[in-house]
Design a protein around this nucleic acid. Structure first.
Length: 130
RNA sequence: GCAGUAAACUGUUUUAUCGCUCCUGUUAUAUAACAGGAGAGGAAAGUCCGGACAACACAGGGCACCAUACUUUCGAAAGAAAGAUGUUCGUGAGAGCAUAGAAGCGGAGAAGAAAAUAACUGCCUGUUGAAGUGUAGGAGGAUGGGUAAACCCGCCUUCGAUAAAGCUUCGGUUGGUAAAGGUGAGAAGGUGGGGUAAGAGCCCACCAGUUCUGAUGGUGACAUUAGAAGCUGUCCGCCUUAUGGGUUGUAAGAUCACGUAUAUCAGCAGUUAAGGGCUGCCCGUCCGAUGCUGAGGGGUAGAUCGCACAGAUAAAUGAUAAAAACCCUGUUAGCGAUAUCGGGGUACAGAAUCCGGCUUACAGGUUUACUGCUUUU
RNA sequence: UGACCCAUGGUGUAAUGGCAGCACUUAUGGUUUUGGUCCAUACAGUCUAGGUUCGAGUCCUGGUGGGUCAG
């Protein structure tokens, strides 16, 4: 019961905040598309405080209003938070470190269900790489 | 009842599951758990104004430049409220816009004679040239009048020596004139009369405005009223006066770390020459050759502070589901109020240094005051 | 986030507040045996909504769109 509770948390340490790391991610990462999402990922080093660090991004060109951008990012974050347990367990077992970026590619504001479907697909694909 | 105007306020609520940021406390311990508390707006937006704050080593002055300009009150300032005058829109309640000064100077395409000095067409006086008309008188005529006739007066036709003055027309010239001149947004304030050679506020009456003086009301801008001055075109710019403005912006800037050698910086001595300084010019002021001492180029570019009784740094304040409330719309029942069952919608929009304004966006709802139309009494 | 700039035919670029031009492109015709070159003609425009003015591409205000600089 305790383990389940932890698995739904999404704290600050899991966010990718350092500017240097973000620049590295955008310049060197591998990428693939999954529905309305575009996924970037790179293997990290031992300095990281958490096995997986994630960032979410919506471009200003596609959605000029801050409200729309915030809403999409919240939905993406929610979808990741509820479905990350499997990925987390695998990486904990293998003692791997990874940094992932999720970019929103679609031009429309999709509903939560579509985003969740694409997120599950994307997480499955990441697991298949390792 | 319908439609509308102005001002003020509001801007969905509840439950379930999972979750975020910060603060305080406790426990283990340096990151977790638990408990408690706080966590987006009227515009957080646009970045259009003003200020705080910070840097530009350090006091300043003048000019230029820029902005503003009716009155009173409030305000640090931007600006706001209430009024004044003019103007546009609206049947109306109301709404929008503009507003310092006037001495001097300059400009106003096309059109029009001309955009204000004058000239041109035209009108008029004088003068000059040409042409015509025409005054004495004679003859004739009938359709005139005084009376019927004679006679007289008038009219018409024709002849007519001399030819000054006059009159008319045309041309030249001297002067006067702004009354008329198709235009134009705007044409010497308008109408009438007098006056004059012709004309003109040249003079007069009335009307419109301006300025000055007085009275009354108002804190005041102004309003009303009495008198005086013939003072009277429109717009724009220069200009004048008053007030304000140094420049750049939190990616300002501060600290630590990283990193390297003679660009630079600091202190002391020293020299007054170029040159320089985070708005242009002038003045002033300061720095300024070089030496000594210390720190130190092209490197590194990370972190913390700045930073908040919301507060981060790919950026928290949420996601999903259900219900309620309100609005729109359809079906069925009903004369109707309404009821039932479906469907759809619930705005604009997300703090990033902070305040005060302005502007723009906004589903719907509430209150107050008022207006127009209609109905009833 | 802060600071700043721009918008004229399909494209590039002019225009002192006074008739919106120029070049290329496109279309049509001519020249040529044909094509090209050349010549002639035509189409097509001031981002948008207000205001100032007798009259705005130009001046003022709001909006829209695009772009630049600063780590």
């Amino acid at each position: 019961m305790h383990a389940e509770k932890i698995s739904y948390c999404f704290r600050k340490q899991e966010h990718l905040c350092s500017k240097k790391q973000i620049d590295l991610l955008f310049s060197k990462a591998k990428s693939f598309n999954s529905g309305c999402l575009r996924v970037l990922f790179i293997t990290g080093n031992d300095n990281m405080s958490f096995p997986i660090q994630v960032l979410f991004s919506v471009s200003k060109k596609r959605f000029s209003r801050a409200v729309d951008r915030n809403r999409i990012k919240r939905k993406m974050r929610e979808a990741y938070r509820l479905n990350k347990a499997e990925l987390y367990n695998i990486f904990k077992e293998k003692r791997l470190f990874i940094q992932v970026g999720f970019l929103y590619v679609s031009d429309e504001i999709n509903s939560y269900k579509i985003i969740e479907r694409d997120m599950i697909k994307a997480l499955g694909k990441i697991i298949s790489f390792f």
